[in-house]
Structure formats: structure tokens, C-alpha cells
Nucleic acid binder design. Structure first.
Lengths: 196, 196
DNA sequence: GTCTATACCCTGATAGAC
DNA sequence: GTCTATCAGGGTATAGAC
């Protein structure tokens, strides 16, 4: 097993911040929390990151770079059909909701709404994450060939993201997966209607 | 014109907190901000509310009670057709996004994601707001009579909420109303597909 | 119900030796 | 790059007179 101490300090900080920002939110996580849970001293954190928000940027870059290997690849293992892959991806969020008793939703969506007026740099990182997610779904849609030529595949892919984010929000508030399931079922019906 | 001072203290506090929580977020609004902008002293606030979160509960109750008179009635003025009313409601959020340069989204959705692990009391207030919104849209759907009997009108209404919340989130992050418009257009297509 | 003053803690961030 | 110590400020909430 890899111990925390074996990981270089910067990566350790990003990994711990990633987890805490997800669990508690960005603003409710103190720098002291991150230092304690990562076994790091204040001086080291501020050696690598100018500010707490700078660390958040590092976390969002990590999410962006992890979409392919850490989100898509596990979700798509053993799923070859591109349309099924879209629902496997959505199913991953469902699983996360249920298994965490609705504590864990979408870490990017949380940040997007938690910070009322994000800096341009922060907003850019959020958009990069949303775009990478949308790219993946758009790729599935195109690969499937089910959409007529006059349908905007990117808009459909973005609607999948909208559905996921809205569904996760409601499921967490209700502590009930039904709103999420209903949203996914509706999206599926929408997709079928487009495909015919 | 009604001056601030003419309004009873409790209502004044709720009104100002409502605005600030929306503009800046709950956690980024300090009690001092609320006191300053409402022209109130600390002792008065804590006379009416035990804690800052208690004030948030008051704000959410106000939102809930205001859905009919302050959200639906203005949006539906001069709109008789129940299906058009659904899109008039969604159009209200669009207008808000654009006119505020994407600073104002859905105040309830913001709180729902800003607070990672809301107390049961807080969660209950969020749910009340989502339910009241869903009730209104479900009423429109039933009144319109466009849905076949085997379609779950409540699930469709909730999907409208999902669409709105997801669309607002993305539009704010992108600072571009396109994701919202695409989401609404997709929802409309979904509704048409159901209705036939 | 409202006023002033303030307790008391935790926040992000810094200093400077090693 | 890492360590300890600490700063300055702002956070929520309270005390107690009026």
C-alpha cells in the first residue's frame, strides 16, 4: 500500500484538498484541515501555492486531467456500445450518490455553485472540466451514429451534462435517488425520440 | 417609496439576507454584512434568530411563501396557455441570468450545493421550495392535458426543474446563455415527443 | 426590542531559521 | 523544500445597560 508520506508534497496536498473540498466544500475546508490531513506544514503549502484558491486551481486541473483515466475508463470497462457508455457514465454518478448516502455529488458542479463570483482563472478551469465531459459524451453520440444529421450532437451532449448536474442536485437535496433516475429516464426518452 | 426603516426589523433582516445570500452566497455573507446593509444591530438580529443558519431558514421560508406571488404570478402575467406558462417560468430564469450578467441564478440551487451536508431542517426547506416549484409545473402539465395517461406528470415536472437547475449552473460557469437555451430547447423537444 | 462593546476563536497567510 | 511560531483580521455570537 502506498503511504501518504511516499507521495511528493505537492501531489499529496492536491490529493487531500481534492477529497476535502469534495466532502466539505471549498469554503468549509480550512487550510489547517488540509495541513493536518496531509501531514504537511504551512510553509510547504505556501511554497507550492500562493493562496488557497491557487490550490483549488490545482485540484481542478487534476480533475480535468483525470477525466479520461479516472472517470471514463472505469465507467466504460466492459461497455462497448457508445450509447450504453453514456448511461454507464451517468450510472457512475448514481452509484456514487447511493453509496455515499448522498454526500458525494459532482465535485465540479459543487464548486461552480459554491463560489458566487469566480475569478476568470477559476471559471476557466470549471469550463475545461465541463467541456472535457461534454467532449466525451459527444464522441459517444457521433460514434453511435444514431443522431440524424440535422441534430446538434454537442447540444445533446451538453444536455446530458445538464441532466446529470440537475439530477444530482435534486437527489442530494431530497436524499432520494428518484429525481436522478427520473432525469436519466427522461433524457433517455429524449434521445430515443431524436434517434427515430 | 418605502424606506428600509419603515419595515419591521425581522422582515428587514430576512429581506437583506435574502439578497446578500443570493448575490454573494451564504457562507461568503457575514453577519456583519447583513447588519450593515440592513441598518440593524447585532443584538436585534440575535433577538429574532438564534444563529446565522436560523436566519437562512427564515430566508428559505420566505422564498417558499413567495413562489406563488413573486415568481409565478409575474412570470405568468398575460400567459394563459399552461404549456406556455412552463416556458415563461423558464424564461424568467433566462432573463435573470442575462440581465444580471450571469451573477444571479437560482438562489435555492445555490444553497443546495453550497452547503455540503445540510441539517435536516435546512434540507427540509430546500425540498419544500423544490416541491412547490414542481407542483406548479405539474399543475400546468395536467391542465394542458397534453400528456398521455401513462406518463408520470410529476416526473416530467421534476425534469423541468432538473433542466432549469442544470442549465443555470452551466450558463453561469460559461457566462453564456447557450447551455441554458439548449437545455430548454431539449426539454421542449422531449415534451413534444411525449405529447404525440 | 435595541443599543454598544467585546469575547473568543479560527481564518488565510507570513517570517525567518534550518 | 521544510520547520515552528505567529500575525493581523474577521468570523459568529454574547453581555448587559437602556
Amino acid at each position: 500500500m502506498t503511504t501518504l508520506a511516499a507521495v511528493p508534497t505537492r501531489e499529496r496536498l492536491v490529493a487531500v484538498a481534492m477529497r476535502l473540498f469534495w466532502e466539505k466544500g471549498y469554503q468549509s475546508t480550512s487550510v489547517a484541515d488540509i495541513l493536518r490531513e496531509s501531514g504537511t506544514n504551512s510553509g510547504s503549502l505556501y511554497h507550492f501555492f500562493e493562496t488557497k484558491q491557487d490550490l483549488l486551481l490545482g485540484v481542478l486541473e487534476q480533475y480535468r486531467d483525470g477525466i479520461e483515466p479516472l472517470l471514463l475508463m472505469p465507467a466504460w470497462e466492459g461497455v462497448a456500445d457508445p450509447i450504453e457508455r453514456i448511461f454507464a457514465l451517468l450510472g457512475g454518478y448514481r452509484r456514487l450518490l447511493v453509496e455515499s448516502d448522498f454526500r458525494f455529488g459532482c465535485p465540479i458542479g459543487n464548486i461552480a455553485l459554491e463560489i458566487a463570483e469566480p475569478d476568470p482563472a477559476l471559471r476557466e478551469r470549471l469550463v475545461e472540466n465541463f467541456e472535457a465531459w461534454t467532449d466525451a459524451v459527444e464522441g459517444c453520440l457521433r460514434e453511435s451514429g444514431v443522431l440524424p444529421a440535422d441534430v446538434d450532437a454537442r447540444a445533446v451532449a451538453r444536455f446530458a451534462l445538464t441532466t446529470m448536474e440537475g439530477g444530482v442536485m435534486l437527489a442530494r437535496a431530497y436524499r432520494d435517488v428518484t429525481p436522478f433516475d427520473d432525469a436519466v429516464a427522461s433524457f433517455e426518452a429524449y434521445l430515443h425520440a431524436l434517434a427515430r
